[in-house]
Measured scan of single mutants.
Amino acid sequence: SAVVMEEGSPGEVPVLVEPPGLEDVEAALGMDRRTDAYSRSSSVSSQEEKSLHAEELVGRGIPIERVVSSEGGRPSVDLSFQPSQPLSKSSSSPELQTLQDILGDPGDKADVGRLSPEVKARSQSGTLDGESAAWSASGEDSRGQPEGPLPSSSPRSPSGLRPRGYTISDSAPSRRGKRVERDALKSRATASNAEKVPGINPSFVFLQLYHSPFFGDESNKPILLPNESQSFERSVQLLDQIPSYDTHKIAVLYVGEGQSNSELAILSNEHGSYRYTEFLTGLGRLIELKDCQPDKVYLGGLDVCGEDGQFTYCWHDDIMQAVFHIATLMPTKDVDKHRCDKKRHLGNDFVSIVYNDSGEDFKLGTIKGQFNFVHVIVTPLDYECNLVSLQCRKDMEGLVDTSVAKIVSDRNLPFVARQMALHANMASQVHHSRSNPTDIYPSKWIARLRHIKRLRQRICEEAAYSNPSLPLVHPPSHSKAPAQTPAEPTPGYEVGQRKRLISSVEDFTEFV
């Protein structure tokens, strides 16, 4: 048969007729292969192709491409040299491709048809291009793949890379869960390890502090508590009631339409708007009261037996805890006409967050109470924005700035309102402590230090009264110190430094 060459192609190359033996071998191979691939376009007849790359030819070592076609129900084999250009295909004639002069020997084609199974398996396991790669995943090629499931790999992101949580363990979102698992493993320790309690022994800490320079003076030496005195035992138990972190309780009120001037209507609300609910979820963490331990979680007086509701929101960081007394989460009882059960919590909070959804101005004093010092007013606006402002009593104007209003988005509203309420509550605590000038409020841990110092002074006084020969370590507060001759004046800087060093040991009130 003659071949018409394309323009620009090399000279004529004689194409030899395939021997009958080659056709029989390739026909047997075509019957084993699956003929249901995917359909081509209507211009080209339905056909199945599979590209198999052999590394070497037997005796020649030339890479070839073998295409199996099922045109007219008769499979045909096409061998081509890759750099050459194939002729145009037609549905009426068999596929013809040019070969190099080196394939002119018909014996070479017979060798190609009689490829060993080793070469076929190696060509099938190679990388296939384009559409033949999808075909190689079918059941027909499963014989050339190794048996057994593939090893499982770690989760992959859409980009093909490992997620960040699997790369950096410290930033993994499941870090707290692993800590819980470690605690569970520790709890399952053997009885021999049960006595080993991690941490620092208080006796060891005391020993280090006792021999430090801070205890060089007799006034700073630790003293032993009497065991037989019940009054001192009660004082030590009272110390446990003062937490070592700051605590805040903040009221949250929802004002519906037409309720801006009605205290009873505001306290009777059992739910609010959708934006109000989203605002609550951002204030803190939802907790169930019956599962809380009052000595570990500050509840601000809420009952854990269901008297004040089942849930509330709280927030904490390293040095403070805040609980929100939310009116809509507290039960509304029919027998309580004046809502006294709610007001006994909300009316005693220094700061209230008022979500004013009424469309009218909310005035300070609508919720009557002796300790309502500051109101954080949240007014929802259009386009997911809110107006946040402050209202306070006249005696609080020096501590709280009420002249600045803020426009905040719904997303950042819980954070801004919480921070403003916490700052206002700190100012309210300082303002409330002014009624007792001898006990200015600095912080909870300073209050613990003052309680310890008062307890020490009482013990020293009782020891001096029981044994008059012992001198008083600290003179009583009601006694007057003996007159001392004025010492020589020293520079102001040295006096300030000495006073600062003494105050650092005794108390921190002056620095606050």
Rank of each mutant, 00 (worst) to 15 (best):
E218T: 09
I223T: 09
I223Y: 10
L224A: 13
E228Y: 08
S229D: 14
E233V: 11
V236P: 06
D240I: 02
P243L: 05
I250G: 01
V255S: 01
Q259E: 03
S260W: 04
N261S: 11
S262V: 03
S262G: 03
L264F: 09
A265K: 11
L267H: 04
S268R: 10
E270P: 04
F279M: 07
L280E: 01
I287Y: 09
K290S: 10
D291Y: 14
D291V: 06
P294L: 14
P294F: 13
K296S: 07
L302H: 14
D303I: 02
C305R: 06
C305Y: 11
G306Q: 12
D308V: 09
D308C: 06
D317F: 00
M320S: 14
M320Y: 06
V323H: 14
F324D: 02
F324E: 02
H325P: 03
H325E: 08
T328W: 01
M330R: 05
P331R: 07
D334W: 07
D341M: 14
R344D: 11
H345R: 10
L346C: 05
G347I: 15
N348M: 12
N356H: 01
N356K: 00
N356T: 00
E360V: 11
F362S: 01
L364M: 15
G365A: 11
T366N: 04
G369T: 05
G369Y: 05
Q370R: 15
F371M: 14
F371C: 15
H375I: 10
V376S: 01
I377N: 05
T379A: 05
T379Q: 15
Y383G: 07
E384V: 02
E384R: 06
C385H: 05
L390I: 06
Q391K: 09
C392V: 13
K394N: 10
M396K: 05
L399Y: 15
S403P: 07
D410W: 00
F415K: 03
A417I: 05
A421P: 00
L422G: 00
A424H: 03
S428I: 09
H431V: 15
R434E: 11
S435T: 10
T438K: 15
D439R: 08
I440M: 09
W445D: 15
R448L: 06
L449M: 12
R450K: 07
R450V: 04
Q457C: 05
C460S: 11
E462H: 06
A464W: 09
Y465G: 09
Y465S: 09
N467M: 14
S469Y: 11
L470A: 13
L472P: 15
L472S: 15
P475T: 14
H478C: 13
S479V: 09
T485I: 11
G492E: 10
G492W: 06
E494P: 13
G496I: 09
G496V: 08
R498Y: 08
L501A: 15
I502G: 14
F508E: 15
F508N: 15
F508Y: 13
